[in-house]
């Protein structure tokens, strides 16, 4: 057992500062374990979100040594041993208290995106037939645990505060999952351009780098959506071919 030093943000919307704590680190411990231990030992009112402790719910997002991370999946063994570990709340969202931020903006963005609209069932019993190959791509997007780490790292939101104009990588992934869903019939291309502001993304790929689910956000979701927007607005012929399922890139709807 060794002692580790932490600098944890304590404060609220009005402001705050890093406060130093130290705690014993046992084998296999993750940052979230240390936070809980500190809570039990010396800071019972330290605010932190968590649920599953297994990287499945996306609750425990924070910035550890300046990097957006799930605290429950960040092992102490991977931290530099001789320096204090800095734990701060996500920066792209308003602070509530300590490590907890107000992420409600994300929920309101999602609500504005056109919902899933399936085609008529393929079979009289009201069901559909889909091949595994045709859903692999969308299943990748549906692994998203809504941790919002990608939103946090994206400079359009983090540095430029374009929350009004840009829905952020998480919701481009969400929209891509709808658009590439083999059963979906809705058309969201115009709103991807206008309401979701896909043009703000300049493909820095930071979002892909931090995604704990390993979703290739930029290459698999954002770039194909950008292409569709470009086809629609700058290459109408390509758009028609895609719509009728001749050109590839889009499973026929």
């Amino acid at each position: 057992m060794a002692k580790a030093t932490f600098q944890i943000f304590r404060g609220d919307s009005a402001g705050g500062q890093l406060k130093e704590y130290s705690t014993e680190v046992g084998e296999g411990m993750v940052v979230l374990d240390c936070i809980h231990q500190i809570q039990a030992e010396s800071a019972p009112d330290l605010a932190v979100r968590w649920n599953c402790k297994a990287g499945k719910c996306g609750s425990c997002s924070a910035e550890v040594n300046g990097r957006p991370k799930l605290m429950c999946m960040t092992r102490m063994a991977d931290m530099p041993p001789d320096q204090p570990i800095v734990v701060e709340p996500l920066k792209a969202f308003p602070r509530l208290r300590d490590l907890v931020t107000d992420v409600s903006w994300n929920y309101s963005v999602k609500k504005k995106i056109g919902r899933f609209k399936p085609r008529k069932p393929d079979v009289a019993d009201g069901t559909w037939r889909m091949q595994q190959d045709d859903i692999d791509r969308v299943q990748e997007f549906r692994k998203c645990i809504e941790c919002f780490l990608c939103q946090d790292v994206c400079h359009v939101l983090r540095d430029h505060n374009k929350h009004e104009e840009f829905s952020g990588p998480r919701f481009l992934v969400y929209t891509a999952a709808l658009e590439m869903h083999p059963l979906d019939t809705d058309d969201r291309i115009d709103s991807i351009k206008d309401e979701q502001g896909i043009g703000y993304c300049n493909i820095t790929k930071c979002c892909t780098t931090v995604c704990p689910e390993g979703i290739t956000i930029t290459d698999n979701a954002i770039i194909p959506l950008k292409e569709r927007v470009a086809d629609r607005h700058y290459d109408p012929l390509m758009w028609i071919l895609r719509k009728v399922g001749i050109a590839d890139g889009e499973p026929s709807k």
Partner: peptide
């Protein structure tokens, strides 16, 4: 379960697409 599929769920498939 089938209702979930009509709401957008994508379960793993059998070779005949079910």
């Amino acid at each position: 379960v089938r209702e979930l599929e009509s709401w957008g769920a994508l379960f793993d498939r059998t070779p005949d697409g079910k």
